[in-house]
């Protein structure tokens, strides 16, 4: 479903190397120390940064040189996931028809469906600033839903929320992604979040993205590089 084939990309003063395949729908956590290249990895998949070498394929299609919007990926950023001066519904409409044109009745139904999937059915007329932090995140999630992408990239999207709310949103993402059959790749620096969420883990250290490990094995027997990052404080792993 997502294949990085011999990727090398410049990330400031070092190169990020990645070579792995994620074959089907699922939930992947990208873990690692800050500055190791987690966000760069996401940027390369999203097309914000072009690799120097290698190819990226989504569902068998080579997307290496494509514009972000054409890649069949949807992205949740750390912030600025919604345009602040537009209502939630307008935000979704823009995501649905990014090159203009009138919304069809079917489009409107899509928007309503996405809003009710994230329990915001009545709040489509509000602007983001009139929503709570959790509601804003759910609205952003609804935006991803209307984009109909098979691959979702999440760059620490809920890091501004408290632990309880974060856990709730992660559970919600997992659930919705499962029903949609999407592949979700989430960058996080929190081992708890990763354990809660992931069935696979990609560890990024020193500019190298390791091959995806099954999450259970990874946390049962963490690689030494990851333990170094945790400061050998294994208590933060359950």
């Amino acid at each position: 479903m997502l294949k990085l084939d011999g990727i090398q990309a410049s990330a400031g003063n070092f190169d990020l190397k990645a070579d792995f395949t994620l074959s089907g729908p699922g939930r992947v956590a990208v873990l690692g120390p800050s500055g190791a290249g987690k966000s760069t990895l996401l940027d390369v998949i999203a097309g914000f940064r072009l690799p120097k070498v290698g190819r990226i394929c989504v569902e068998g299609l080579d997307i290496t040189g494509m514009a972000t919007a054409d890649r069949g990926v949807a992205i949740l950023f750390q912030d600025n996931n919604l345009f602040p001066h537009l209502t939630v519904s307008q935000n979704l409409a823009l995501a649905l028809r990014p090159t203009g044109g009138r919304l069809t009745r079917q489009n409107k139904a899509q928007i309503d469906k996405a809003l009710s999937d994230v329990d915001l059915a009545d709040l489509g007329g509000r602007r983001p600033s009139h929503l709570s932090g959790g509601q804003q995140s759910r609205a952003a999630l609804a935006r991803i839903l209307v984009q109909k992408a098979r691959v979702w990239l999440l760059d620490e999207p809920f890091s501004a929320l408290g632990p309880g709310l974060r856990a709730e949103l992660i559970a919600r993402v997992s659930h919705i992604a499962q029903t949609q059959g999407a592949l979700v790749v989430m960058v996080t620096h929190d081992p708890h979040d990763a354990q809660l969420f992931a069935d696979k883990v990609i560890l990024v250290t020193d500019g190298k993205a390791a091959c995806p490990d099954p999450a259970q094995e990874f946390f049962a027997n963490p690689p030494s590089a990851y333990l170094d990052y945790l400061g050998n404080n294994r208590s933060s792993l359950k």
Partner: peptide, 16 residues
């Protein structure tokens, strides 16, 4: 970044 991710056209970017 969000506009690029959505693929907003130049006109919609300007207008909206």
């Amino acid at each position: 970044r969000l506009s690029a991710a959505l693929g907003l056209s130049s006109w919609l970017w300007l207008r909206w």
